[in-house]
Design a protein around this nucleic acid. Structure first.
Lengths: 244, 244
DNA sequence: TTTGTTGAATTGTTCAACACTTGACAGATT
DNA sequence: AATCTGTCAAGTGTTGAACAATTCAACAAA
């Protein structure tokens, strides 16, 4: 018994524990959702999940409460909890949020700290490397990280955490779909261009390119989601005709 | 015993219950915080609070989890939960958020629906009435409601709920302080001006006035908070010298 | 086909216990 | 007197078991 002690002590006390078990469980589930390990639509049952992680049902409920308030899980009363599924409206809204915040961030980058620029460059290079290696999951990660670094220019914790929460939802939708899809090298130069324009202070031009980039990205994702949906309905129609 | 049944059934079944007790409790606490009934800094103990509302400790914990994720309560592990207290940095950040979102909203109001304009006018009139009646609590409510209606122009649920959550924090700080403070009629014409400019489509001018209004509002709140803080420290210094 | 009815499964909620932290207080030490 | 240390009560974190409420699907009846 008491597997929670195992969980608590398994970190070798590298850092004194200052997080509750519920928060840790939420973290684990969050990672699984964002990695695509838990697919959108998957329903999560309290008891089996709690047992599999060695925590009590109440603790699992707290963890799920956290994630549902973050928008990663969707709770319907007495009907259970499931991994959230992005609708087209969701995608539209999320890209709207991105436009508003990222453009504001660019305009706030009047005299960027060299340290920030260096972080951007690092993220950029990691992104390009991932693309060259055809590692799409990693590419998505570093792509979004690059954009997160832009948000840093706002210097506002609330806007940052809201942005993080928002692109977490987006990422959940992307891993589902981006496994091996198009995404040619066309995207690489855009990020580098953004970086260069930011560095020399051409903010208006930078904002223009960014807007276009976001529009491209949105329509690409929508298209892929549409294909995906079409494929799924075709598949289900097929299976229905088999059984029927 | 079982007062939670009373709580559940007290709504006369006007609408079939589709909210959990935890959510209801969170709602009650949220109202108390926003009304200033629970002052910032007040520490909340699980067991007494749970008993006073007739719910179990676990349910109360879920409710508190909700509010702490909304930013209204602040949780420090093993040390308890307290009503959040706005710092100066918080005020700065919140007004930054307001500037970004409200200005975006104005620019999105190219051809406002007449229905939306009517809502704005109603809010405006209620606000003016409250000011004339020297009812500051009500004035704050309708002031913030007017601004919330502006956000509606964005047509984005995520941005709306983020905005609501953010000004809820602000309101928590305002009720503490705005009980009988300055706030002369100087503020009234600004809102009406905003409305007029919006109606005739002078968005740039509207945005300019709004920005100035937000700056005014921020500096006024900061000033009042500063006075408040000064008064408090003087008071505590006094009480210390009495006991010492 | 449509409309109850039943019952198993799952979530919502409560309760009681224990583990772990914290903060305060009393006694010991210098 | 001032500081350190150990003890202890109070409060939070977590657990496990129970019961209530709701849903859903299978089945019976019309």
């Amino acid at each position: 018994m008491a597997p929670q002690i195992l969980l608590q002590h398994s970190m070798e006390r590298s850092q004194i524990h200052r997080t509750s078990v519920a928060d840790q469980v939420a973290g684990i589930l969050r990672q699984r959702v964002l990695n695509g390990e838990l697919r959108p639509g998957t329903s999560l049952q309290e008891i089996p999940l709690a047992e599999s992680l060695g925590v009590s049902r109440n603790t699992m409920r707290e963890a799920m409460r956290i994630l549902s308030l973050e928008g990663l899980l969707k709770r319907s009363i007495h009907r259970g909890i499931a991994v959230a599924q992005l609708s087209f409206q969701d995608v539209q809204e999320i890209y709207h949020v991105r436009r508003v915040l990222e453009i504001s961030a660019i305009h706030a980058a009047k005299t960027p700290a060299p340290e920030r620029l260096h972080d951007l460059l690092t993220a950029l290079e990691q992104y390009e490397k991932a693309v060259r290696a055809r590692d799409w999951v990693s590419a998505v990660t570093h792509d979004l990280h690059f954009h997160s670094l832009l948000i840093r220019f706002l210097g506002n914790r609330r806007l940052e955490s809201f942005y993080q929460k928002t692109i977490a939802e987006l990422r959940m939708g992307m891993v589902l779909v981006d496994q091996r899809h198009d995404h040619p090298g066309i995207l690489i130069p855009v990020h580098r261009k953004l970086y260069e324009l930011l560095k020399i202070g051409k903010l208006k031009e930078c904002a223009r390119i960014l807007l276009q980039h976001l529009d491209d990205s949105e329509s690409r994702l929508s298209r892929v989601m549409d294909n995906h949906r079409a494929a799924k309905t075709a598949e289900s129609r097929e299976s229905r005709s088999k059984t029927g």
